[in-house]
Design a protein around this nucleic acid. Structure first.
Lengths: 200, 200
DNA sequence: GTCTATACTGGGATAGAC
DNA sequence: GTCTATCCCAGTATAGAC
């Protein structure tokens, strides 16, 4: 079992937050359980009272994030019929998730390719595919509706959007001057209108 | 000394290519010297005849790549006076570098934030700043010339471009149907004109 | 829930023979 | 240039006391 006991306890969440911060900034492989324990003010052995292994920590972090993101995306698709409004909402929701799930996003970006090789983390691929489906759906509907250019390859556009949005977690600072919403807006301007001045 | 001996030997280059492939796909920390040696068909100890350490291998890989990229960028700035032509050239040169330096780019993307913490890899930051300067220069000149929109924040635009271009190494396949040049072209279309159909 | 103590493994690296 | 053999350390994880 991945939740050894007290599944909903505050201490678990606290330890996961500490571990997540370290995994995100130093990498999963290079973060030692001793470092996590140190940061939490306990000894490494004590961590195993809460978690089975280092792997199960990162597993729990990623599952929580992906569950929340999937719900948010589904809500967008259910509520936004207009393709362009849906695109705006997907981008905004994604940037906003950096405020609450920044560490998990960084871990997902940096480690999922590597982790997905193990059966235990197979859900990383399947969930990623479902999320991809949300974007593709919106882009294709938009093309059919004549809102988005038809000369662009949708899979390519999807990858550019996905990469640009998520990789922003590397420099986005939740306590900085630019809010997630403001960044989402500037990004949508570039994405939709391009950077070239009209008439030039 | 990082080049233990025979600095220009073929065997060195061969071993570096093997190591680079592993570092890129499995991560630097999770790749063991024994795996590298296995892939090369020799024993781990024999690697130390060519290199001081695992670190010096990744060091040499990154230095080579950054040197080549820096030269290419400088050439672009020297040859392209027009901002839009320079932007196109920077994007194209970057995508084309994936054909020859794909592994190094992946390593740079995945590990440099972590590696840059050590003095030995301080050049990662300084070189990244110089490369950033090339993009900022082109974007600012373009804004002054009225070619690029003035309502966009240049540093933000730079980060979006940089991230989108380089993160493409995760899915770009040099032997796939889309050439680097073709991808650069589609990307420039999105970047310059946006994805929205004119008049909608 | 944390500590003490420690088992066990695998990783990076070295010395010297061939 | 590669192999044999091996050292040493650091990392994950465990058992049981408190």
């Amino acid at each position: 079992m991945s939740a050894k006991r007290h599944p909903g306890s505050d201490r678990r969440a606290e330890l996961l937050a500490i571990a997540g911060r370290l995994f995100a900034s130093r990498g999963f492989a290079t973060t030692t359980v001793r470092e996590i324990a140190d940061a939490a003010g306990i000894l490494s052995g004590s961590l195993y009272h809460h978690f089975d292994s280092k792997e199960s920590m990162v597993d729990e972090i990623l599952r929580g994030f992906l569950d929340r993101l999937r719900s948010a995306y589904r809500r967008v698709l259910a509520e936004q019929a207009d393709p362009r409004a849906a695109l705006t909402a997907l981008v905004t929701v994604s940037f906003e998730s950096m405020d609450t799930d920044g560490d998990a996003i960084a871990i997902f970006q940096n480690e999922s390719q590597h982790l997905a090789q193990f059966e235990r983390f197979g859900y990383l691929c399947s969930t990623a595919e479902e999320l991809e489906g949300c974007w593709l759906d919106v882009l294709k509907r938009g093309q059919r509706a004549g809102v988005f250019r038809r000369d662009l390859r949708v899979p390519l556009v999807y990858r550019f959007i996905r990469d640009t949005v998520w990789v922003a977690v590397r420099w986005y600072d939740p306590r900085g001057s630019l809010s997630a919403e403001a960044i989402a807006e500037q990004y949508l301007t570039i994405l939709c209108q391009g950077i070239v001045e009209l008439g030039s």
